[in-house]
Write a protein that binds this DNA or RNA. Structure first.
Ligand SMILES: [Mn+2]
Ligand SMILES: [Mn+2]
Ligand SMILES: [Mn+2]
Ligand SMILES: [Mn+2]
Lengths: 233, 233
DNA sequence: ATACAAATTTAAGCAAGCTTAATTATTTTT
DNA sequence: AAAAATAATTAAGCTTGCTTAAATTTGTAT
């Protein structure tokens, strides 16, 4: 079981999380400017923070080189992500908050959550493995559920029926779009046809046919089979 | 309905709360050193903050004079207290946290709670009026429940049966003491005898007699009658 | 290979929220 | 009323997490 030894701050935790999500979850190169954009601070601020965290042994960094989390840094990032996603699930399922609002709230609560509170929340929620967006909740040890059976919607063959597991969105407008179509994790759809030329896709959802633009299709991860829900997906 | 216009910080909110609780709830004089002690910062820090908040119109202050909340400052303080006490109730009743731990947790969560989250929490808890310590939860408008029927345990006559409403404690050791005796808000006791010479008191609680030291007796507020619980006390 | 563009670092500086030490004001005691 | 004690303020300085602007390094295109 991991317990943070160093004293972290809101800024540090958000920084570590950004490095983790950008590099590991999104598989992108962790450049200074990408971090700057994501965190909404200047590149100079990124350099500052990188040097500071490097001294603390939380990231590996030398000038002009890529920023990489150390094992300690990675565990800390996973712990913050765990708190974030537990809160999101709580806000959505227990307090019935709007899907579009929970991220912003969790972004703040994640920094004020003791280990004890995290445990109680986990227990109250029934030791969930996924948040309402379908993102995996890291365990206390920093482990993630196996996801080898998840497939991008783009790769699903015509005629197949799949369950939507995860929709990766940041923008509020896009939420409303998905919400309008009734598309969310847990919902089953049938792929009718994929239009290769622009990646858009015709699907059947709750009996109705509709065409999803390619920009939305790429945001969706699916799974064959049917008996999964968030919380115990 | 009150909405904060100025941007507050953790330090400012804690400061305002300290002024409110010290002055209004505890009825003490709001001196710089009392605030310094309560907030764990230096007197110089108090002077700094007082001048800053005075400029913002949140407190009335001039050098060497007492610090007083303006109407704005008082409403802001009450809003923070509201969030604090809603969280305490949630942590205690919903997440089953230890009574001795909830204050510290709420002390941090209170600063990261949006109006929307506060509302949802309030609704989920059933629009409670009291926190687990028996402290009143201010309404969104900054109003407090009527407490004219509350009497200090010291003033209860021998032979009377009363319900414990509120126990004002900060120290963890004292919690454990009360817990050991089974004394908490909602519990009914009978006053057998008051020992005037040291303020200690013999009571009957759940059939058993015990002598409460004067130092504990003064921390307890009671009510005659019986059908009150926390949450809807 | 050179030149240009893009990314990153350095330098200087700012605000918040503190600190300690010295000074001044107020209150209490004699 | 003067002296002593207590409380509050001022002054100077520190850390964190930022900023902007200038300098430098790296990557890209010709
Ligand atoms: Mn999120
Ligand atoms: Mn955050
Ligand atoms: Mn409390
Ligand atoms: Mn607080």
């Amino acid at each position: 079981m991991y317990f943070s030894l160093l004293k972290m701050s809101v800024s540090i935790d958000n920084f570590l999380k950004a490095v983790y999500v950008l590099g590991i979850e999104e598989g992108k190169k962790v450049t200074g400017s990408a971090l700057a954009a994501r965190l909404g601070i200047s590149s100079a601020g990124i350099t500052d923070m990188s040097r500071k965290l490097s001294r603390k042994g939380i990231v590996d960094y030398s000038p002009y080189k890529e920023i990489v989390l150390t094992e300690t840094g990675k565990l800390e990032a996973l712990q913050v992500i765990r708190k974030h996603r537990l809160w999101e699930l709580f806000l959505y399922k227990v307090l019935n908050m709007d899907m579009a609002d929970i991220h912003k709230e969790a972004e703040r609560l994640e920094h004020e959550t003791s280990i004890e509170l995290m445990h109680r929340l986990d227990e109250f929620l029934g030791f969930p493995q996924y948040d309402p967006h379908g993102e995996p909740i890291p365990s206390i040890e920093g482990l993630l559920p196996d996801e080898s059976d998840l497939i991008p919607l783009v790769e699903v063959n015509e005629g197949m029926r799949v369950k939507i597991i995860r929709i990766s969105i940041r923008e509020k407008e896009v939420y409303e779009m998905f919400q309008h179509y009734g598309i969310k994790p847990g919902i089953k759809i049938e792929v009718i046809r994929l239009f290769d030329f622009d990646g858009s896709m015709e699907i059947r959802i709750k009996g109705e046919k509709l065409i999803l633009p390619g920009s939305l299709v790429t945001l969706i991860l699916c799974k064959e089979g049917k008996n999964v829900h968030y919380g115990d997906q």
